[in-house]
Design a protein around this nucleic acid. Structure first.
Length: 763
DNA sequence: TTGTTACTATTTTTT
DNA sequence: ATAGTAACAA
């Protein structure tokens, strides 16, 4: 520019060198991305389509703020939606900045950040700072108790439903007083609201919060205490929000409160990927952004770096059928690549077989399995694939399946730890008071409850009192006393015993470990291993309390998942991930779009389903395979359903239809194995037909859901038909049939039964 | 009090 | 088909 006119001075020339070089972290960003990174101040909304480098922008932005010294790591609030996303961010920032990540204490999910803040000011919202966090299970149990106490028929008014209703209210930021009058009549003839109030009261008594409260109480805290709010305004110089389209009203209110400080808030999201409406997410938040944050700058990222042309076009074509969207036009500079394939098959087994074959073919072509994903609408669809992969010996992992900490044994163990740390935790105490069996069942519990309620004390305290009275019969009384004493003992060890050691001792002492050791069921072994894993994982934390904090919110240790494996997950779990090859099975009316979303949400439900399809297709970098079945088993009976309406919404030129022999895909090849099933579809014949079929195709592997166990010890039974065996309970008998580890046995002194192989001995 | 059996309702997605 | 619950027997 002007410096060309006259010769620059030495200092100017040298200065040029300072100003000019772009920081290395900006390299490779396109114009919009760079804009999103560099516009640090004021409200910014980044509309980032699928595969446009959203996470990269977010992390680079943080890196930029840190590198330029605009804020220190602990002055940045970065909120994500899932733990997975948090981890990913930490890793990426770590790679960019190097190590500093631990210094970013305010990078986390809404919930984990909520806990952190609430612990500091617990007393302001009527809690003690060691409050416990209830998971869905706990809160459901609590609601059940309340419903029972009100003498409401559990059958007619299932606790589940109440849980959903209350959760919905909480998601919308509604405390009991704020629930609009037209919704008060809901549940059990208008008692829903009072149950909600009772539930909240009970939570306070228990010094506990549920997930929803983490947001709700948070808002109460900040709204009612301007000085505290100011403190956080000062603290957070920059706010970043990931997956903004998934925020619900409560989260939105919270963000708005906090952002009133500096106003430096940057939200990244994609309205076309809003798939959590059922959970209270409000796409509206993204639409309202410019209104609520005046002077907001909106930046659109529309260049897709992930998928090839056909895939992107197919996805765009599909999503264009939605009416409620901000509208983005994604483009790619990659080639067209391959078309999206479309295939119809006979039933779900055939679908699994077909996809399994295809994956095997890919495998021989050196396609890494890690780069292959199967994305299903509902988790029950996974079973067919798991079955098939086990037979093929194809390694796979389930992402987002039952989480580690949701397993029975883990929850039981944690309940023990919880009660040791906090005897007033009634729900946990109740959970384990009779696990393992100690003769302390309903009757005893009833007495305890009664006493606790009348005296206004916790179950544990009332147990201590009752043990010294005549109220219980000697047997349970002794048993209860022993339990209490043991808890006292453990509690005395908390201070000076290494926590992993203590944990082990608790599990052994209580007889919990023994309970599983005695258990002969095939899962018992895995359970024990999980417990070991739990203790091992615990070692990574400083103390028991620190560990427990993580368990409730953050923990998902997936063991045994390394190596090259096919990924199996729901469409919801797939958001944010990408794979070379993606299979999208089950595109049928009723399943996808899901019937329920149509029934309950009408058009907006349908649009959300369509976005789910969009998310699915755009996960693929190179290949997308859509398939649908003609027949599917739902609620145990066979249903024939038409292909998904979404299929015909796909642009024809981007789709390659896979034709097969016969007039319906896959029929010719699958007929042989499926015929019997079809012929014997009478109500009672059905069960047997299914079994026969299974035996034929699946020879000697079990059909248990816990396929991971099987994968390890492939064949568990080496019994033979006709062999004579002994069973602890039923005595001697002969094997008439074998199905995996389930044996059909004709007992000499009892009626024929199906028995797990682990329960019998050779004779 | 525990264990068994019979029955019923339930099947989306999750922090 | 399955899980979870309620009713019943030992």
């Amino acid at each position: 520019m002007s410096s060309n006119a006259k010769a620059p001075s030495l200092s100017e020339r040298a200065k040029g060198n300072i100003a000019a070089p772009t920081p290395p972290y900006l390299n490779g960003l396109n114009e919009e991305q760079a804009d999103a990174v560099l516009t640090t101040d004021g409200p910014v909304l980044v509309l980032a389509g699928a595969g446009t480098g959203k996470t990269r922008v977010l992390t680079t932005r943080i890196g930029h703020i840190l590198a330029t010294g605009k804020a220190r790591p602990n002055e940045i609030l970065a909120v994500t939606f899932t733990n997975k996303a948090t981890r990913e961010m930490k890793n990426r920032i770590g790679a960019m900045i190097g190590g500093m990540v631990e210094g970013m204490p305010w990078l986390g999910t809404f919930h984990s950040i909520g806990v952190k803040i609430l612990r500091r000011h617990a007393e302001m919202v009527d809690l003690k700072s060691n409050f416990t966090i209830l998971d869905g299970d706990d809160s459901l149990r609590l609601m059940k108790q309340l419903i029972k106490a009100e003498n409401i028929d559990e059958k007619r008014w299932p606790p589940r439903r109440l849980a959903t209703i209350i959760d919905g209210w909480k998601n919308r930021g509604l405390t009991p007083e704020k629930v609009p009058s037209n919704e008060r009549g809901i549940f059990a003839d208008g008692r829903g609201l009072s149950l909600y109030a009772a539930y909240q009261k009970r939570l306070k008594e228990l010094n506990a919060v549920d997930f929803g409260d983490l947001l709700l109480e948070m808002n109460k805290l900040l709204a009612d205490n301007p000085d505290i709010l100011k403190e956080y305004h000062r603290r957070f110089k920059y706010i970043l929000v990931d997956e903004y389209q998934d925020t619900n009203v409560a989260q939105y209110m919270w963000l708005r409160l906090i952002a009133q400080g500096t106003g430096n808030i940057c939200c990244v999201g994609d309205d076309d990927q809003a798939i959590y409406g059922w959970r209270g997410a409000e796409v509206d938040n993204i639409l309202r952004f410019e209104k609520d944050f005046p002077g907001a700058k909106t930046i659109r990222l529309e260049r897709n770096y992930r998928s090839t042309g056909h895939i992107l076009a197919a996805a765009s074509g599909l999503i264009s059928h939605n009416e409620d969207r901000l509208g983005k036009t994604l483009h790619t500079e990659d080639g067209l690549g391959d078309q999206v394939t479309l295939k119809g098959v006979w039933d779900d087994a055939e679908e699994a077989r077909s996809i399994g074959d295809e994956i095997e073919a890919l495998q021989t072509k050196q396609h890494p399995l890690n780069e292959i994903a199967i994305l299903v609408r509902a988790s029950f669809q996974m079973r067919a694939f798991e079955d098939r992969f086990v037979t093929l010996g194809l390694p796979y992992r389930v992402i987002g399946g039952p989480r580690f900490y949701e397993r029975l044994e883990i929850k039981d163990a944690c309940a023990y730890f919880d009660v040791v740390l906090n005897p007033a935790n009634d729900l946990k105490f109740e959970r384990i008071i009779n696990t393992p069996k100690r003769g302390l069942a309903n009757a005893t519990l009833e007495v305890l409850h009664h006493h606790a309620r009348s005296r206004g004390i916790s179950l544990f305290e009332s147990a201590m009192e009752i043990v010294d009275t005549e109220e219980l019969r000697p047997k349970p009384r002794g048993s209860l006393r022993a339990l209490i004493e043991r808890f006292g003992h453990w509690r005395s060890l908390v201070e000076n015993t290494p926590h992993t050691e203590l944990a082990e001792q608790i599990l052994d002492d209580s007889g919990y470990t023994q309970m599983w050791q005695k258990d002969k069921s095939p899962q018992a072994q895995t359970r024990l291993e999980n417990l070991k894993e739990l203790i091992r994982y615990m070692g990574e934390f400083e103390n028991l309390a620190g560990f427990m904090e993580h368990v409730s919110l953050v923990m998902d240790a997936d063991a045994n998942n390394d190596g090259d494996r096919v990924n199996l997950m729901t469409l919801h779990a797939a958001k944010g991930l990408e794979f070379d090859t993606v299979f999208l099975p089950g595109w049928e009316e009723g399943l996808f779009p899901h019937q329920r979303s149509l029934d309950e949400e009408g058009k907006s439900g349908l649009e959300e389903e369509r976005r789910l399809g969009y998310v699915g297709i755009t996960r693929a970098k190179k290949k997308s395979h859509i398939s649908f079945t003609q027949n599917r088993r739902i609620h145990g009976s066979w249903v024939t359903q038409p292909p998904s309406r979404f299929i015909d919404e796909l642009p024809e030129k981007n789709i390659e239809v896979i034709e097969q022999m016969g007039n319906f895909g896959g029929y010719a090849t699958s007929r042989f194995e499926n015929m019997p099933q079809n012929y014997e579809r009478t109500p009672k014949g059905n069960a047997n037909a299914g079994k026969n079929y299974n035996r034929k195709s699946a020879s000697n592997f079990t059909k248990t859901i816990d396929a991971k166990v099987i994968a390890k010890k492939t064949v568990t039974t080496d019994y033979e038909v006709g062999e004579r065996i002994f069973h602890q309970k039923f005595g001697y008998g002969a094997i008439t049939n074998i199905n995996g580890d389930t044996l059909d046995i004709d007992f000499e002194k009892a009626s024929p039964k199906k028995v797990k192989a682990s329960f019998v001995e050779r004779h």
